[in-house]
Amino acid sequence: MYQNKTITVISHMLVWLTLMCLPYLLSYGDEQNINRVVAHFWIPLLFSSIIFYINYFVFVDRFLFPKKTLQFIITNTLLIIFFLVLKEYIEDHFFKELSQKRLAITNRAEPPFKMAIYIQLLSYLAPLFFSVALKSTKRWAKTEAERKEAANFKLKQELQHLHYQLQPHFFFNSLNNIYALVDISPDQAKSSIHSLSKLMRYMLYETNVESIPLTKEIDFMKKYIDLMKLRVSDKTVVNYSFPSEETGIRIAPLLFISLIENAFKHGVSASKESIIQINMTCHDHTILFSVENDNFPKKTDDKSGSGIGLPNVEKRLELLYPNKSSFKTFVKDNNFVAQLEIETN
Rank of each mutant, 00 (worst) to 15 (best):
M1G: 15
N4R: 06
N4Q: 12
K5F: 15
I7Q: 14
S11C: 14
V15T: 01
W16E: 05
L26E: 01
P44G: 03
L46C: 15
Y53P: 00
Y53I: 00
Y56I: 04
F59I: 04
F59D: 03
V60G: 01
D61E: 09
F63R: 01
K67S: 06
K68S: 02
T77K: 07
I80P: 00
Y89F: 14
E97G: 11
K101M: 09
E110T: 13
P111W: 15
P112C: 14
S123D: 12
A126R: 05
L128E: 01
F130S: 02
S136D: 02
K154P: 05
K154H: 12
K156Q: 11
L166V: 02
Q167M: 06
H169L: 07
N173C: 09
N177W: 02
Y179F: 14
V182G: 06
S185W: 13
P186G: 07
Q188H: 10
H194V: 11
S195N: 05
S195D: 10
L196P: 13
L196H: 05
K198L: 15
Y202P: 10
L204W: 03
Y205E: 05
E217L: 13
D219H: 02
R231Q: 09
R231Y: 07
V232N: 09
V232W: 12
V237C: 04
V237P: 04
V238T: 04
P243M: 09
T247H: 08
L255R: 05
E261Q: 09
F264M: 02
G267M: 10
E273K: 10
I278E: 05
C282H: 10
L288T: 13
V291T: 06
E292I: 12
K299R: 14
D302R: 08
G309F: 02
K315W: 02
R316S: 13
L317Y: 05
D333N: 08
D333L: 04
N335V: 06
E341I: 11
E341V: 11
